[in-house]
Design a protein around this nucleic acid. Sequence first.
RNA 1: GGAGGGGUGGCGGAGUCCGGCUGAACGCACCGGUCUUGAAAACCGGCAGAGGCCCUGCGGUCUCUCGUGGGUUCGAAUCCCACCCCCUCCGCCA
Length: 423
Amino acid sequence: MLDIKRLRKEPEQVVEALGRRGVQVPMDEFTRLDRRRRELLVEVEEKKALRNRASGEIAAAKRSGGDAAEQIEAMKQVGEEIKQLEDVLRDVERQLDDIVMELPNPPLPDVPTGDDESANVTLRSHGEPTVFDFQPKAHWDLGAELGIIDQERGTKVAESRFTLLKGLGARLERALINFFLDLHTREHGYTELFPPILVNSESMRGTGQLTKFAQAEMYKLRDDDLYLNPTAEVPVTNLYRDEVLEEAQLPMHVTAYLPSFRREAGAAGRDTRGLIRQHQFNKVELVKFVMPETSADELESLTANAEEVLKRLELPFRTVTLCTGDLGFASAKTYDLEVWLPSYDGYKEISSCSNFLDFQARRLGIRYRPADGGKPRFLHTLNGSGLAVGRTFAAIIENFQNEDGSVSVPEVLRPFMGVDRID
RNA sequence: GGAGGGGUGGCGGAGUCCGGCUGAACGCACCGGUCUUGAAAACCGGCAGAGGCCCUGCGGUCUCUCGUGGGUUCGAAUCCCACCCCCUCCGCCA
């Protein structure tokens, strides 16, 4: 949620920044409603002050055995007026809220302007696209031949976009999760969490998953106010909702493995084969709660932590800065990590690392008390995948495939796999 | 699922039956000060959050907040209704 005070104090900057995202701020309407709100507030509060004063006097009169009937009668009238004004005020505040809640996070100045992904800027790349001296296969074909991916049976027990992993496939999935978590906890200093996989609507709303557009993506339980987790960002970021942390607790770096579920409502016909776009997928998430002054640096290190996974797996990838048009609603700046996928003859997103500044924290009410004892301030939140497991699985199968249809196991995974090839 | 108890400030804990100078006693923690060679103890003082208005540096003032949302009333932490959550016992169960 955008800081309404910022919209008042520096409207030009906000309008300019959001303009880069192609968002029109209804500034005139905002100003009108905002002014109206404050007028009403002053009026209501004056009447309330009057009533409070009178109540005190009534109490005093009664205690000394006096008669306060006249004043009580007058206050009845004032009470009515307050009630009416409050109705109007509530309505104005709702309209204001509708405007502010629909505004996305203004992008940071160093985010490139653009309409869509074609304007994203490649920041750096690691490794070269894998070259084969034979015709490489897509992971869905290779996986089926190896008997480690069974799409048909996944569909049989659930529906399409669900997959069964078997044998060394199931083990590879588990190995990746363990490798990711071990790296982030033992070497990158993150604390491991395992949160609930069902989350309530308040949590979903807090991280912005229940907007008009996002809602259709979520699996909702019929009999309870619960949803299947769409990304560990939701349960993890909500951990400290409505709390005031101590500065000494910051920065807080946490990681969580969690199955994630998405309906992929708008993706009919896209990535229909293989593990790239599934209704259920595993992901290891990185989340940070940090001091405002440090969030820019924290985004760099978060991204580096995610990149390290790909480096150790010896997978070619590149890091791109998303342009304004490709940014998520709550993000002020995002780096995507894209892994080389031979079957796509291109790079495919495997991690998305974002700095939300205080946008999420404001909506969620997550603050910290400065060490000097000052007023609580909103902290900054960041998150990134570290990494998406299914897409990593696909990338390994495809990039490490051999001519005989076997797949070599990346060096770092061998301790987890117990074998050096899948065949 | 059944029965009972309970949700108050950073924490503990009064107040709720009998509505009114109670945004909330008291204690702990924390911050500042006095004392001390230093520290502790003791003593003095401060110490919830959000929003509005005035001044716009300090500050002043008002409103709201005692799980959440309604209601009664001139006035609600205190009364009424609904919901949420927690605890104990029983039942069930991985």
